[in-house]
Design a protein around this nucleic acid. Structure first.
Lengths: 244, 244
DNA sequence: GAGTGGTCTAGACCACCCC
DNA sequence: GGGTGGTCTAGACCACTCT
């Protein structure tokens, strides 16, 4: 029996602490925007040293799940905070200005999940979904046409009125109204030619090249929540990215 | 004098260590692929504890400047290593396969920096530059047409023969031949219509929507080295990105 | 077994925020 | 002044790699 067994599955303590903290977040023990207990208090609760708690919090902070504030405490990150409001919006004016877009909702309807959406959201094909369409404007000019698909079960009572009455980004809306915090997203970009009705809504000629941004957004535990397709004109605007 | 002075500019020790390590890298004390001294040895050299050296190395590792290997040592990251070869290539087949592209060089010529390139690379407009054009193929199909602009002063003796004889990515070439290691890049994506001669090289009809990926790549100390424009067809391929 | 990075602890002190 | 996160140290022990 010289062959070692599968592997003792060594798990550092701080990873276990990280899992415990995440569980508390999922359970809603601390809500977005609130402070979590101090490092010393958590160290006592988990029976480990402050340094070990610290390392766990460090990692959650680097994943933008928690936010450290020196002298004050550690807080649960929230899309409602101004600096996080449009954290996932990569489209910017070429001038480099930090403009916040204005949202105009176009449509909200019930539908059934296509095969593609069902696969992305982990639903059965044909499951009931909400389909939201909106336009993002910069300085009054329409730049992005978004279509969001959401499992109906996770978003009960979603109406146009509730969307329009809420001020802020979609993810801040999901968080404030449905308690769903989006923590990461995967995007795939392609170039497409504008077709109606998108061309009309973006006020460009059919055939104009547009960026097509497909996104799946995830909440705690990598559970997919939103499928989105954005069509974006790139005359004066571009999708910015940092490779590191 | 109750008003405090500008600020004592408090700098943690580990940041200073980080700067010292970076200086050694710039000076070429340790070359890409080589091991740097052990943490204990560096701690002795800098007269700090191992933990402080550790934190400095942790940050450089998270920036992909160093690579830790448990039980072996800490190494200078290199684009020549297989897993780093195409680290900045975000275009993938929609199937999700991990395909490595094949490079076909199209052209190398001397030119003068345009205003845009000069600004990006910190040169004077009209400075001498090399302009490299190449096509990346996946399974024999042309997918990306790249144009790279490089300051002539940094790349002496660059010839088509040297480019073609080298096997590997551009950044691995810069590193191996000119000792320039690219550590990060900024990209801006737009959608454009294919024009000649790009359409011909990518074997698409003029007017086909293409992704246009503009990039500035930087070496140690955020010094810009390469300006690049990639035109990419997105029929079966897409630009992938992770938002976190 | 020797050497390297990885984890964990305990304690001291500093910087920052707010009362 | 008291609480919080941030830095730094010193030392013990674990996991991994190579010889």
């Amino acid at each position: 029996m010289s062959k070692p067994l599968p592997t003792p599955a060594f798990r550092p303590l701080y990873e276990q602490i990280k899992i415990l903290l995440t569980q508390s977040l999922v359970a809603g023990e601390w809500k977005p925007g609130e402070a979590i207990p101090s490092e010393i208090e958590l160290a006592g609760r988990f029976r480990v040293s402050q340094g070990t708690v610290r390392k766990a919090i460090d990692e959650l902070a680097s994943e933008h799940i928690l936010v450290r504030r020196q002298g004050k405490g550690t807080y649960v990150a929230s899309h409602s905070e101004p600096s996080y409001q449009y954290r996932f919006l990569r489209v910017m004016p070429d001038t480099g200005e930090k403009l916040h877009p204005h949202t105009v909702f176009v449509d909200l309807r019930k539908g059934k999940a296509s095969a593609e959406v069902a696969r992305a959201l982990g639903l059965k094909a044909g499951s009931p979904v909400h389909v939201v369409k909106r336009v993002l404007q910069f300085r009054g000019r329409p730049v992005i046409l978004d279509e969001m698909v959401l499992a109906a079960g996770r978003f009960p009572g979603l109406t146009m009125a509730r969307l329009e009455e809420y001020k802020g980004s979609m993810y801040s809306f999901y968080e404030a109204v449905y308690g769903l915090r989006m923590i990461r997203a995967e995007e795939r970009l392609t170039a497409v030619a504008a077709e109606e009705p998108a061309a009309g809504l973006l006020k460009v000629k059919p055939g104009t090249p547009l960026l097509c941004v497909d996104r799946i957004a995830y909440t705690y535990g990598d559970a997919p929540v939103e499928w989105r397709r954005g069509l974006c004109l790139t005359d004066g605007f571009s999708y910015t990215n940092e490779l590191a």
